[in-house]
Design a protein around this nucleic acid. Structure first.
Lengths: 137, 137
DNA sequence: GCAAAATGCTACCCCCGGGTAGAATATAAA
DNA sequence: TTTATATTCTACCCGGGGGTAGCATTTTGC
């Protein structure tokens, strides 16, 4: 019942970048400021780059930059890229088909929470996460 | 965002046992009926036995039996025994201290869901899970 | 042109959840 | 007493997420 470390890192990193404006941030500086393993974060940002969430700037003074509007980048997209959303959509007891018509024993107790979480992931944007000052990152 | 296989198996197995009365069930029969790996389920039941959720009956015609009243066995207890509840209580972004006073960026979006899930686990009993006919197990 | 600083890529290692194998032990039925 | 059927215990293997290391590549600043 937790995000993968990859998702934790990706979200914290993007929130930090969003928070400090639209400039270019090197992986080194992000890694130092957020306490995230350098090489690991590098792979993560590379992946977010190839999926079009951020843009890479090569060479000296290079790094990564968020290009799309923050209101456009939703949690569900980030999580889907780095860990996939399958585990948020599947039956809690692992059955292939599980719905109102043919429920597992936990369905009535779980489906509400599952739907709520998915809805939250799909509706919450990077703009919302970044807008409040004073929060830890 | 999912139960460990261990929790899936433990819940399905206990629901199945509760459903078919208070008799003794061998690991072999449970494994066959539910499609759960035999040796793996054996270790799981042994653990549930040492924690007092079920009772082992050795020798020929032996197996496991639920002893405590079904209204007394809650999901939270089962999950805590086989996989632990830590991941259901911690901050979604992994911060050590994260609360209303000192929130992480996701706190306001996540804490409600977290509390709801924990409350569900702590209040739902084996009796509730087992009572409905026609559900898959 | 050259060096510094950055991304990009490949190959590893470690830990742990999940799963398997086999022998030891206990006990009811024959 | 023997045998069949069960739990119990230990050791091992596999795959994947998390993490590290090294080198190639790119591009700016001098």
């Amino acid at each position: 019942m937790r995000l993968y470390k990859s998702s934790e890192y990706a979200i914290r990193c993007l929130v930090s970048m969003a928070h400090s404006g639209g400039g270019v941030h090197s992986v080194k500086s992000l890694s130092d400021n957020l306490g995230i393993p350098y090489k690991f974060l590098g792979r993560l940002m590379s992946r977010l780059g190839s999926e079009g969430v951020v843009e890479s700037v090569k060479g000296k003074a290079g790094g990564y930059r968020i290009v799309r509007p923050l209101e456009d980048i939703r949690l569900a997209e980030i999580v889907d890229i780095v860990e996939g959303l399958e585990s948020y959509e599947r039956c809690i007891l692992g059955f292939d088909r599980c719905d109102e018509k043919n429920p597992c024993p936990m369905h009535e107790f779980w489906s509400g929470h599952k739907d709520g979480i998915l809805e939250m992931l799909k509706s919450t944007t990077l703009a919302q996460l970044a807008e409040s000052e004073g929060k830890k990152i």
